[in-house]
């Protein structure tokens, strides 16, 4: 039997993998992928909470599922602008490696 706890553990692992990716990887594209992974971890737990928060009438709480749609939409908008900035960076510097982005310093 799969319980709420199982879903939350999986989503926690996804969130941790995403966070580790943002902190450890050095390519901007992979960092961006990891950020999307973190958003999807939240989506998974939202859907799980919605499914297990059954109201007295027997209907799941759909507020959370609506929220998931908003997160997906906003995530798509963020990727559209974000990739455009990364492409502009690649055109200007021929690199998407974070260690090469070091003009601004103390």
């Amino acid at each position: 039997m799969v319980t709420l706890g199982h879903y939350l553990i999986v989503s926690g692992i996804l969130f941790a993998i995403g966070f580790a990716g943002v902190m450890l990887r050095r390519s901007l594209i992979i960092i961006f992928m990891s950020l999307e992974l973190m958003l999807n971890a939240a989506n998974l737990s939202l859907v799980a909470f919605s499914r297990f928060h059954v109201q007295p009438s027997g209907v799941p709480d759909y507020n959370a599922q609506v929220f998931v749609f908003f997160i997906i939409t906003v995530g798509a908008a963020e990727v559209a602008v974000g990739l455009a900035i990364i492409v502009a960076l690649f055109r200007a510097r021929q690199t998407t490696h974070v260690e090469d982005i070091n003009t601004l310093k103390f």
Binding site: L28, I31, S45, A64, I71, L89, R93, L104
Partner: peptide, 26 residues
């Protein structure tokens, strides 16, 4: 451009934290 990339990555990271936090409160 460098400022833009830094703002992009760190803001997107904070968004992810916000969403995950809201999830738990919900």
């Amino acid at each position: 451009l460098e400022a833009g990339v830094k703002y992009l990555v760190l803001s997107a990271l904070s968004t992810a934290f916000l969403v995950y936090g809201i999830t738990w409160i919900f």
